[in-house]
Design a protein around this nucleic acid. Structure first.
Lengths: 118, 118
DNA sequence: CGGCATCCGTGGCGATACTG
DNA sequence: CAGTATCGCCACGGATGCCG
């Protein structure tokens, strides 16, 4: 494989991780399988369209499984795959780092914005 | 601080990491300070506008410093801060994971797309 | 050399309404 | 309940041209 392609591939995965809802969805699923509206409610603020889109992307990449129960009313469970649980490890590490250092980042932002004052 | 706010804060940092060029820029700067066009050339494919925007964002967040040498022609060095170097640790871990597992992800994508055939 | 200003196309994302 | 369909906004990102 080529080095440049590697960079693109890595960027590709990182952008999936970086999109607006993926990390929240994956981390919620880290506690075990959830139904569509259970996810929707525990996350809060996400539209059904974006939850569907996010879950389809995660399913396509092999991070979650989608299980349909043909009952009435219908029921759909989402669960992390092994790959998804493996992904959770470095993602949580990054998340923990972000949580520990968010204050430093915010402080830097305020300083930066203050110097660019009106 | 509130739990929901924590999630937002983490998302905030993750989205910065996930945007198109940030990780590439930070990893290039991991090898030491670079000038604007040095960065531009080693990355390849990035417009000056996006490089400027990316660097401003990183500077605002406290991940890089910007040093101007008032010479002719002008010279500007960019360098990782301590915070930037710390960020590099979990980011590289995620990058390494992505590189190791990109084949599994691509295989899953092809399978998924194949089932949704013409 | 290292920007900033401007224009513009694409796509992410939300709101709303409808369906199996 | 768990979607699909449609619309519209606007932020992201590329291309180009000018400036200190």
């Amino acid at each position: 494989m080529h080095l440049t392609n590697d960079c693109r591939a890595v960027s590709d995965v990182l952008q999936r991780v970086g999109d607006k809802w993926t990390v929240l969805v994956v981390s919620k699923l880290g506690g075990g399988p959830l139904r569509f509206n259970e996810l929707r409610n525990t996350i809060g603020g996400i539209s059904q369209k974006m939850l569907t889109t996010t879950l389809r992307g995660l399913e396509r990449d092999g991070f979650v499984t989608r299980t349909v129960f043909p009952t009435i009313p219908p029921r759909v469970d989402y669960e992390l795959t092994d790959l998804g649980r493996e992904l959770l490890v470095p993602v949580q590490a990054l998340g923990d780092w972000a949580l520990k250092n968010i204050d430093r980042v915010n402080a830097s932002r305020e300083r930066f914005d203050a110097e660019r004052g009106p």
